[in-house]
Each structure stands twice: as structure tokens, then as C-alpha cells.
Design a protein around this nucleic acid. Structure first.
Lengths: 177, 177
DNA sequence: AAATATACGGAGGCCGCCTCCGGTTATGCA
DNA sequence: TGCATAACCGGAGGCGGCCTCCGTATATTT
């Protein structure tokens, strides 16, 4: 990949992230190209589809999330799980407008993101497994359950952290043994 | 209101309902107008905003929902509540594409729908109150909690009734006393 | 039947999407 | 260093959807 191509690629990614956060996933691609100091053609060559651009932006963020999960202390697995769910909520809320793509990715193995976030999924599953081993969580709970719940809550009250936390706790009460 | 105006209004409503169900809330308004055998101008006069059209379509459906809630037998309030949540899920899933507007309406008193669905809200609250009186549900549970959970689930697994039911039960286990 | 209020419709301006290809630039090789 | 060429850039342009505006048509009233 040529040096200028790589530079433009990164710039587009940066501006797209900003635009999506500010104006949602429907932000004008032409504006994003302009903000990156690049023609539309260049944008479309790197990211043939709006979806591709979104996926590329999210890829980085998934890695950040996975890092958070790894750092969670596991002394109290139930507590760690709660923290993890809340951390996800904060993160999703911070990248608002991308929520919809996230949940699609997590639930759908066909999604290009599904593969690119394996680290996230496996780390998250690790937390869940630890909680199960400690016997603090129903054994039939799956990672998919967690993902669905988190994203459902994130979407339902995107801008109300208090309600988010309340709903997480309602959920956990049904799930902690 | 003139007779022809009323006729066009109804036709637009019908076609809009069909289009939204089939192609989502982003369906082309010009197509809807064409399907209703009407010019765009007419559509925009009746519904100045896409939002207005969506709201009008939903208004009817809210009434149908309220009727369902009223018919639920209350012998076992806990069970009635569960049935009610599942009925909402089915209904929301059937009108897919409108989910987003629904949750906005239920949570936001500013929404034009909020007023128009008072019947729904109060009937639903009635079911919840009955469950509380019977002592089968946490007393701090609110109607808003229910609405948020239902819509979160509806959105998270729009096309997977099995998962929907599973999540409802997970939720209820944390909430039934 | 005429007068008037009401409603219709679609042309047109605007904007965002996406493609296409003539021009530009980086890079490898002599 | 200078050239050849493969890789890349950019934006004009066609398309379609959004929404407004106003000349025309139709229902209603008297």
C-alpha cells in the first residue's frame, strides 16, 4: 500500500469516527471526505460501502473494549461481570450512532466485524465462565444473552446512565444465583 | 375536512403502513404517495414530516395494543404480565421498522405519540399495579422499566422470537418476588 | 349555477449517493 | 538522478429522494 494511500485511509477513519459520533451513522460521506481533505472517490475506493467505513471505525474500538475486559479484576466474578456490563454500556453510549451496527455484528457470524472482534467475545466469555465456575451465575447464561441485553439497554436509554444501571441490576438479579 | 381530502388521508395512511412494514421507516415518501395515487404535495400537506406520518400510522396500532391489554385475564397477575410483555413483543416485531419511534414515544412526554397512547400506558400500568397488589412483583418496578425492557429486547433480537421469550423470562426472574 | 374556500399535483431546486476516468504522484529500477 | 509505470487521486456528473411552491381543479355553499 502506497504511503499516501495509507495516510488518506487513516485520515478518513479519524474523520468518520468524529462524524459518526457527532451526527450519527447517517452523516454525509461527502462531508467526511471533505473533512479528511480528500475527494469522494478516494473515500469510496477505500470503503466501497458506508457499512465498510463503520466496520473499520468500530474495529479499533473493539480492541479497546477487549483491553478493558482483560483488566477487570476477577476476585469477585459476579462483581466483575457487573462492571464489565457497565463498561460496555459506557463505551457504547460514548460511540453513539454505532450501536446498531454493534449489535448486528455480535449476533451475526456473517458480519465482517464478527471475526474482527473475536478477542472481545472471548474475553467477555472468559468473564462469564469465571462467574459460572464460582457458581454466582445461572449456568445456562450465554455470552449472546449478555451482548443482547447490553445492547438492548444501550439503545433503549442511550442517554440516561441512571436508567441503564438500574436495568442492568434488574437483569442481574434474575441471573445471579 | 373535505371528503376527497379525508379519502386521500386514509389512503396515504394505509400505504405508509404497508411501506414501513415492508421497507422500513426510510421508505421513499414519493413512492408512498404514488402507491396512494396521490402527488407528493398532497402527502406533505397532510403529513408535513416523515415523523408525522409515522406517528399517524402508529396511532392506530397503539389502540389495538391497548385492547389486547384490556382482554388479558388477571386471575394470575404475574402470568398476565408475562403475556402482556410477550404480546407487545409480537406486536412490535410485526410492525418492524417502527420500533425506534415507539420507544422514543413511550419514554418522552414531548412526543406527539405520548399523548395519543395514554390508553395503552394506563392499561399497561393497570396490569403492573395488579401484579404489585398481588405481591408477585417488586414494588419499585415502573411502567417505564417495562417499556424499556420490551423495546430493548424487541430491537436486540427483532426476528428471533425464541430469544425474545428467553430474555423476557430472564428479566421476569429478577423482578417477580 | 356561480362564487368561494379548499385541496390537488408535479415541476423544480437542492442535496447526498456512487461511478468513472483523465490526470497526478509515489516507487522501483537503470 | 531521471524515467517508466503501477498505484492512486479527485471531482464532475447522473440518479434518486426530499421538500416547496403555486397554478389548476374540485367540493361545498348559497
Amino acid at each position: 500500500m502506497r504511503a499516501d494511500a495509507r495516510r488518506n485511509y487513516e485520515r478518513l477513519l479519524t474523520e468518520a469516527g468524529a462524524a459518526f459520533a457527532e451526527r450519527g451513522t447517517e452523516a454525509s460521506l461527502e462531508d467526511i471526505a471533505k473533512a479528511a481533505g480528500v475527494g469522494v472517490g478516494t473515500l469510496y475506493r477505500h470503503f466501497p460501502t458506508r457499512q465498510d467505513l463503520i466496520v473499520a471505525v468500530l474495529h479499533d474500538r473493539f480492541e479497546a473494549m477487549a483491553a478493558v475486559a482483560r483488566d477487570l479484576t476477577c476476585d469477585d466474578p459476579g462483581r466483575a461481570l457487573r462492571e464489565w456490563l457497565l463498561a460496555q454500556l459506557r463505551h457504547i453510549t460514548a460511540t453513539r450512532g454505532l450501536t446498531a451496527e454493534l449489535v448486528v455484528a455480535v449476533n451475526n457470524p456473517e458480519s465482517p466485524l464478527y471475526g474482527s472482534c473475536e478477542a472481545l467475545v472471548s474475553t467477555s466469555s472468559g468473564l462469564l465462565a469465571a462467574a459460572k465456575d464460582a457458581g454466582v451465575v445461572r449456568p445456562d447464561l450465554t455470552h449472546a444473552d449478555l451482548a443482547t441485553v447490553v445492547h438492548g439497554i444501550a439503545w433503549s436509554c442511550e442517554s440516561d446512565p441512571v436508567r441503564q444501571e438500574r436495568l442492568i441490576d434488574l437483569f442481574l438479579e434474575g441471573v445471579l444465583v
